[in-house]
Design a protein around this nucleic acid. Structure first.
Length: 599
RNA sequence: GGGGGUGUAGCUCAAUUGGUUAGAGCGCUGCCCUGUCACGGCAGAGGUUACGGGUUCGAGUCCCGCCACUCCCGCCA
C-alpha cells in the first residue's frame, strides 16, 4: 500500500507516528519559506507541511512545483499544530504531517473548473461537469451521493435476504413487446433481420419466476426506455424490482413500508412512521389534481359544481351543463401576484388545455376580479366559506370535464406552491417526508384516437375480483389491483397484483385490449402457456432506485446520483456516445443505413 | 415533434438607448513572503461575445437561421 492512513484518520492520538498519506493536492499555500499542502482522498483531507530547514533543497523545490490535483504520496511525522493554528473546520485540524519525503505519483494539468471550492463548483455549468465527470465526481458532494447510493443498495440487499428473497438476474437481451415504452433494439448477428430488445422492466421474467416457484424475487435491475428524458428520467435506470407469490395487496404495502423504514434509517438516521396514508386515485385527483400529490402543503382543490350549476356566469354553468365541474384553489397570501404572474399561470393552464384561468385577488377587503360581477351573493358566500377566504388570498378556478379541471388546477397548485416557497411564504422542512399509497386506479383508460381501451398500468394487472364480469360489459368501471408509492409528490414506484389465470389474461389481451389472437400468441404466448402449468397467485412492485437516492440526497435531478448520466438528448458528453460505426460492423449485422450522413 | 430559459476570458458573472480599446472576482504565469488553511503582496498573460447570415455609419446588445446545455408539454404499457 502506498498509504498507512487515509486523509480523515489522523488525530492527536497519532502524534509522533510516521505515516504515509496518498491522494490529490487539494490546496497549496506557498508562504515562500514554508509550504502547506492539503492532501485530499475519498475520506477527507489532511495538512502536510514542507519546511526547508529540515528538507533537502530538491525535495522542497519539488513541493513548490506541485499544483492543484497532482497525485502525491507524502511520508512524515504526525505532530501537534502550533498553539492557535488549529483548523476547526476539518476533523484533522488539530494535527499536521511534517513531510520528510514526497513522491509525485502524477502531475495534473490546470483544471477546466475548480473542484476544491464547493460554492463555485455547484454553480459550474452542468455541460462542463458531465464532460469532465471524473473531476465532478471528486467533489465531496458527489462522492457523498455515490457513497449513499452504495449504502442503500447494500441495505436493500440485506433487507430482502433477511426476508427470504432471492436476487435473480434476468436477461437484458430480451425481445420486443411494443405495447409499452419505446424500446432500444439490438440487431441479432446470428439471426439476420431479427432483433433483441432491451427490457423496459423485467416484468415478464419476474412473473415467470413466480411460475417457477421462486416465491420471493428481487433484483436491482437495469431498465431501458427509448423515450424523451427529464430531470427524473434517463434512458437507462435502475429499479428495485420485487415479485411475490401467495400474497395480497396488503402484503406488498407492509413489505415496502418496512424496506423504506430501513432505508431512511440507514441513509438519514430518520425514523419514518408506518403504516403510510392511503388515498384513492379519485380522492387524489379531487383534492390535489394529480395522482402523485405532494401533501406537505395544503392549497387543496375545492368543488363548486353544485353552487354554480345555475350561475349567471355562463363559463361556469355552461361547463357544468355539458357534464363538467367547477373547482377552485385558494393560494393563501398570493393576492400580490403581479399581472405578469397571473398571465404566466393562465398561459401555463392553457398549455394543459384550459380555455382560461379565472381568478379573484382579495386585497384591501375587496375582491378584484374580471368575473366577480357575475357572481350572486349566495355564490360569493359559498366561496368565502368553503375556501376560507381572507385578506391577501388568491383564488383560482378551473371549469372543465372532471379529469381536465382537476389536472389543470393540480398543475396550478404546484406552480403557486413553488411561487410561495420562493417568496418565503410557504416553508417545507427539508427533512419532512410524506409517504402515501395511491390505490384504486381504474384498470383501463380509453384512447379516443385509436378508439380502444388500453391498460392504465400494464396488461398483467389483475382486476378487483368482483369486477371481472365487468371487463367485457363495462370496462370503465373495472378497478385494478394497482398501487403507487408516492413521497413528497414524487412517484417512487408502482405495482400490482397480477392476473394468474390464463383465461382472464387472454380475455384482457384479446377482448378488452383488442390485440389480435395471433399477435398475443407471438408476443405473450410463452407466458400464457406457462400459466397453464400451475401459476400461483402473485404480485409485485418496482421502485425507481435513482429517484429514491435523489430524494435521500435532496436533489431534484437523478443525474446527480448516477455516476455517468446522459444529457437531455440522450448523449454522453464524456465518451461522446452514441457514435457512428464502421460499415463492416453494419454488414455483420445485416443492416443498411438510410439516414443522410450528418456531422 | 412543440414551448420556455441559458450561451461573453480556464471558471463564475458584468457591460446604460445600438456608440471609445468588452470589464471584475477566482484561476493561471512570474517575482516576493516561515504558520497558512478562501494565505498575503506586486506585476503580467488571457476574448472569433457558441456558430452562420442580415439590418446599421456602428452590433455582445436588434432581426433571421443554426448548434449545445437545461426545464416543461407530448411521450414514459
Amino acid at each position: 500500500m502506498k498509504r498507512t492512513h487515509h486523509c480523515n484518520e489522523l488525530r492527536s492520538a497519532h502524534i509522533g507516528q510516521t505515516v504515509t498519506l496518498s491522494g490529490w493536492v487539494h490546496s497549496r499555500r506557498d508562504l515562500g519559506g514554508l509550504i502547506f499542502i492539503d492532501i485530499r482522498d475519498r475520506e477527507g483531507r489532511t495538512q502536510t507541511v514542507f519546511d526547508p530547514s529540515d528538507l533537502p533543497a530538491e525535495l522542497f523545490e519539488c513541493a513548490a512545483a506541485l499544483r492543484s490535483e497532482c497525485v502525491v504520496s507524502v511520508t512524515g511525522k504526525v505532530r501537534q499544530r502550533p498553539e492557535g493554528t488549529n483548523n476547526v473546520k476539518i476533523p484533522t485540524g488539530e494535527i499536521e504531517v511534517a513531510a520528510g519525503a514526497l513522491e509525485v505519483l502524477n502531475m495534473a494539468d490546470v483544471l477546466p473548473f475548480p473542484v476544491d471550492d464547493p460554492e463555485v463548483a455547484k454553480t459550474v455549468n452542468e455541460e462542463l461537469r458531465l464532460q469532465y465527470r471524473y473531476l465532478d465526481l471528486r467533489r465531496p458532494e458527489m462522492t457523498r451521493n455515490l457513497r449513499l447510493r452504495s449504502k442503500v443498495a447494500t441495505a436493500t440487499r440485506f433487507f430482502f435476504d433477511e426476508q427470504g428473497f432471492l436476487e435473480v438476474e434476468t436477461p437484458t437481451l430480451f425481445k420486443s413487446t411494443p405495447e409499452g415504452a419505446r424500446e432500444f433494439l439490438v440487431p441479432a448477428r446470428l439471426h439476420p433481420g431479427k432483433f433483441y430488445a432491451l427490457p423496459q422492466s423485467p416484468q415478464q421474467f419476474k412473473q415467470i419466476l413466480m411460475v417457477a416457484g421462486v416465491e420471493k424475487y428481487f433484483q436491482l435491475a437495469r431498465c431501458y426506455r427509448d423515450e424523451d428524458l427529464r430531470a427524473d428520467r434517463q434512458p437507462e435506470f435502475t429499479q428495485i424490482d420485487i415479485e411475490m407469490s401467495f400474497i395480497e395487496r396488503e402484503d406488498i404495502y407492509a413489505l415496502i413500508e418496512e424496506l423504506l423504514k430501513r432505508v431512511w434509517k440507514t441513509a438519514l438516521n430518520i425514523d419514518i412512521p408506518t403504516p403510510f396514508k392511503r388515498l384513492s386515485f379519485e380522492e387524489a385527483l379531487n383534492r390535489y389534481g394529480i395522482d402523485k400529490p405532494d401533501t406537505r402543503y395544503g392549497i387543496e382543490l375545492v368543488d363548486f359544481t353544485e353552487e354554480f350549476r345555475a350561475s349567471a356566469f355562463k363559463v361556469f354553468s355552461g361547463a357544468i351543463a355539458v357534464g363538467g365541474v367547477v373547482k377552485a384553489i385558494n393560494a393563501k397570501g398570493l393576492a400580490d401576484a403581479t399581472q405578469g404572474q397571473i398571465e404566466t399561470m393562465t398561459e401555463y393552464a392553457k398549455s394543459f388545455g384550459a380555455k382560461g384561468l379565472a381568478y379573484i385577488k382579495v386585497e384591501k377587503g375587496e375582491w378584484k376580479s374580471p368575473i366577480v360581477k357575475f357572481f350572486s351573493s349566495a355564490e360569493k358566500a359559498a366561496l368565502t366559506e368553503k375556501l376560507k377566504i381572507e385578506e391577501g388570498d388568491l383564488i383560482l378556478f378551473a371549469a372543465d370535464q372532471w379529469l381536465n379541471a382537476c389536472e389543470i388546477l393540480g398543475k396550478i397548485r404546484i406552480y403557486c406552491a413553488d411561487l410561495l416557497k420562493s417568496q418565503g411564504k410557504l416553508m417545507v422542512p427539508a427533512d419532512r417526508f410524506d409517504f402515501l399509497w395511491v390505490v384504486d386506479f381504474p384498470l383501463l383508460a380509453y384512447d379516443k384516437e385509436q378508439n380502444r381501451w388500453f391498460s392504465s398500468h400494464h396488461p398483467f394487472t389483475a382486476p378487483v375480483a368482483a369486477d371481472i364480469p365487468l371487463l367485457t360489459t363495462d370496462p370503465k368501471k373495472v378497478r385494478g389491483q394497482h398501487y403507487d408509492i408516492v413521497v413528497n409528490g414524487v412517484e417512487l414506484g408502482g405495482g400490482s397484483i397480477r392476473i394468474h389465470r390464463p383465461d382472464v389474461q387472454k380475455t384482457v389481451f384479446e377482448d378488452v385490449l383488442q390485440i389480435p389472437a395471433e399477435m398475443v400468441k407471438a408476443r405473450f404466448g410463452y407466458m400464457l402457456e406457462a400459466f397453464r402449468f400451475g401459476a400461483p397467485p402473485h404480485g409485485g412492485i418496482a421502485l425507481g432506485f435513482d429517484r429514491l437516492i435523489a430524494i435521500l440526497c435532496g436533489t431534484s435531478s437523478i443525474r446527480d446520483v448516477i455516476a455517468f448520466p446522459k444529457t437531455a438528448k440522450g448523449t454522453c458528453l464524456m465518451t461522446e456516445s452514441p457514435a457512428p460505426v464502421e460499415s463492416k460492423q453494419l454488414r455483420d449485422l445485416h443492416l443498411e443505413l438510410r439516414v443522410a450522413k450528418k456531422d
